[in-house]
C-alpha cells in the first residue's frame, strides 16, 4: 500500500527508517542524551543525514518512572516539533504520545504522524489525527495501561490478538476520518508481552503484513532481544538487526530504531535478497 505521510509519498516497495528522538531524561537506551533541546535537534540533523525518513519524538519514557503529566509532556515535545519542522521541512515528524491533547498541540506545530504506542488508550487521538490530516500508528498492547510493565499476561494466540486489535483500531481511525494512506499497524514488541510473545510475533510477522495494512516494527534494543541473547542494553545491536532482517523479509515497511545506518543497510540488503530492490551498482561478472 502506498504510504502518504506529511509531504511525502512512499511507493509500495519503499522501506522506511524511523529514528527515535527522545525528549526525556530517563529513556532506557540513551539515558537522557538528548534531554537538552539543542542536543535533540543535533540528533535530528544527524539521523536525517544518515537517511532516516521519519523522526519519532517522544516526551515520556515507556517504562514506569517519574510522572509526566500532560503539561510537562507538551513542554518537552510541542515547541521542539516546531523547531524540527522549521529546520527540516521535508522530514516526516512523528510524535510518540498516547494523549490527544499532546497530539493536537504537536500537529499544530507541524507533526505528520501520531505514534500511539499505547494502543488507543485515549479514544480522542483518532479525532486529532483526522482533524489535522495526520497519520496514525495503531499498536497492540493487549489493553494494558500506559507506562506499565507486563505482568503475567496470557494470550490464546498473541499474533491473532495483535491482528485483531491493530486492524480494529486502524478501521476505527479510518471511520473517524484519518487518511487510510497514513495508517500503520504495529504489533508492539515487548508491550504487554513476554519475550516468547515478541519472538512469536517476529516469527509470524508475515501474518500481520498479510492484512494489507503497512506494518511498523519497533524492535530496537528491546528486552526481548536482551533476554534472548542474555545481553544488557548497549550490547543488543546484532540481535536487533537479526530481528529487523526477519521482519523486513516478511514485508514490514517501517523500522523504528536508535541506530539508523546499520538498520538501513540491513533493510536494503534484505529487500534486495527478496528481489524487491536492485543492487546499488552491479558489475561483478558482467563487464
Amino acid at each position: 500500500m502506498t504510504l502518504r505521510l506529511g509531504r511525502r509519498t512512499f511507493a509500495d516497495s519503499a522501506t522506511l527508517v524511523m529514528a527515535i528522538v527522545n525528549r526525556t531524561p530517563d529513556s532506557f537506551y540513551d539515558r537522557g542524551a538528548t534531554w537538552a533541546e539543542d542536543r535533540a535537534l543535533d540528533r535530528v540533523a544527524q539521523v536525517v543525514e544518515e537517511g532516516a525518513d521519519i523522526v519519532d519524538i517522544g516526551g515520556v519514557k515507556a517504562a514506569p518512572g517519574d510522572v509526566v503529566d500532560d503539561v510537562e509532556e507538551q513542554r518537552r515535545v510541542v515547541g521542539f516539533v516546531g523547531r524540527v519542522r522549521a529546520a527540516h521541512p521535508d522530514v516526516v515528524i512523528s510524535v510518540d504520545t498516547w494523549r490527544a491533547s499532546v497530539g493536537h498541540a504537536a500537529c499544530a506545530e507541524g507533526a505528520d504522524l501520531l505514534n500511539d504506542a499505547w494502543g488507543g488508550h485515549d479514544p480522542g487521538l483518532v479525532d486529532v489525527a483526522a482533524d489535522h490530516g495526520a497519520g496514525l500508528v495503531c499498536t497492540h498492547t493487549g489493553g494494558v495501561t500506559p507506562r506499565t510493565r507486563p505482568h503475567r499476561i496470557e494470550y490464546a494466540d498473541v499474533v491473532a490478538s495483535a491482528i485483531a486489535d491493530t486492524t480494529a483500531y486502524a478501521e476505527r481511525a479510518v471511520r473517524a476520518g484519518v487518511d487510510p494512506a497514513g495508517v500503520l499497524i504495529d504489533p508492539a514488541h515487548d508491550f504487554g508481552k513476554t519475550t516468547a510473545h515478541s519472538l512469536e510475533l517476529t516469527r509470524r510477522l508475515g501474518e500481520l503484513t498479510a492484512t494489507g495494512w503497512p506494518v511498523l516494527v519497533s524492535l530496537s534494543n528491546k528486552d526481548f532481544v536482551g533476554e534472548t541473547l542474555a545481553l544488557p542494553v548497549g550490547e543488543r545491536l546484532a540481535g536487533t538487526l537479526a530481528a529487523t532482517a526477519v521482519c523486513a523479509l516478511a514485508g514490514a515497511r517501517v523500522f523504528r530504531v536508535h541506530e539508523v545506518v546499520p538498520t538501513r543497510q540491513v533493510v536494503d540488503m534484505v529487500a534486495s535478497i527478496a528481489g524487491r530492490r536492485p543492487p546499488a551498482r552491479a558489475v561483478r561478472g558482467l563487464a
Binding site: P279, A282, V283, G285
Partner: peptide, 16 residues
C-alpha cells in the same frame, strides 16, 4: 556484448 548493459542487471546507479 557486455551483460552489464542488460536491463535485468540494472542497479540503482548505472555504472556505465
Amino acid at each position: 556484448a557486455a551483460p552489464v548493459l542488460l536491463a535485468r542487471h540494472a542497479g540503482l546507479v548505472d555504472p556505465v
